[in-house]
Design a protein around this nucleic acid. Structure first.
Lengths: 124, 124
DNA sequence: GGTTGACTTAGAGTGCGGTCTAAGTTCTAG
DNA sequence: CTAGAACTTAGACCGCACTCTAAGTCAACC
């Protein structure tokens, strides 16, 4: 029961997620320490909650599945002993991100090629 | 009714898609000219079908929604008069691809930062 | 102190992009 | 000629990540 911190809609504004999604992430166990409550019902987000959610969005925007995010969160919750495991998980994920970037860059090149031929055709 | 070209499973091998997905794309109207049939039932894919499907996968791997892909396909079907429209569509899509690349690159930096701190901690 | 709007929960619903099933037909190797 | 693998269709089903609903509670302003 705390009275500091921001409401869920403020947190939504800060993170770019919807209030629905913030509740969903919490239900899915992604919130590390559990979000505080004011008057024992309304959520109160503090700055470190926001920082955490923003990091979650980085994982998500690199297409890490929710289930993998949860694995990571569980490791963070374990604390210092899990550092190697967290490192391994992120290094593993890093590979997939690099692969995605490569694939996308490749596809972009193909699209750009098509664009160039259309531009040729249009300017004839 | 043609007897040249490859079966759907060969086409699947060539494109990296499943036979299910190839049929699904055809049903969704993404196949441009319609895939030929041998003995009026079995599909026969020729080289330009394969080239086309591979281009489709480039659009998809840059997160173009199926509905947008279909718009593009419809324009291609219209032929030369639609060049400007196709150009506009691809240029529009290009923006989203660049934005995705930027976001992913950004997120990768955050992940790399985390990796670096874990590596520090592990090597202490 | 009342009303209006934001919040709560559990659980249902949605949209996307496939993916699979069932029942039947066709091809191919022996 | 026949067995079995590969193919056909229409349509049902799936997993993911939200997104929304309903019914009720709480807060903030006039």
């Amino acid at each position: 029961m705390i009275d500091t911190g921001m409401s869920i809609s403020e947190a939504a504004d800060r993170t770019g997620l919807s209030t629905h999604t913030l509740r969903y992430y919490e239900r899915e166990g992604l919130m590390l320490g559990g979000v505080g409550r004011a008057s024992s019902t309304h959520r109160r987000y503090n700055e470190s909650d926001i920082t955490w959610v923003i990091f979650l969005t980085k994982l998500r925007s690199t297409a890490m599945p929710i289930s993998r995010v949860r694995e990571y969160v569980d490791l963070v919750r374990l604390g210092g002993d899990s550092t190697r495991a967290r490192l391994a998980l992120l290094l593993e994920h890093r590979k997939t991100v690099v692969a995605q970037l490569e694939e996308m860059t490749n596809s972009l090149a193909a699209i750009d090629y098509k664009i160039a031929t259309y531009q040729q055709e249009v300017s004839k």
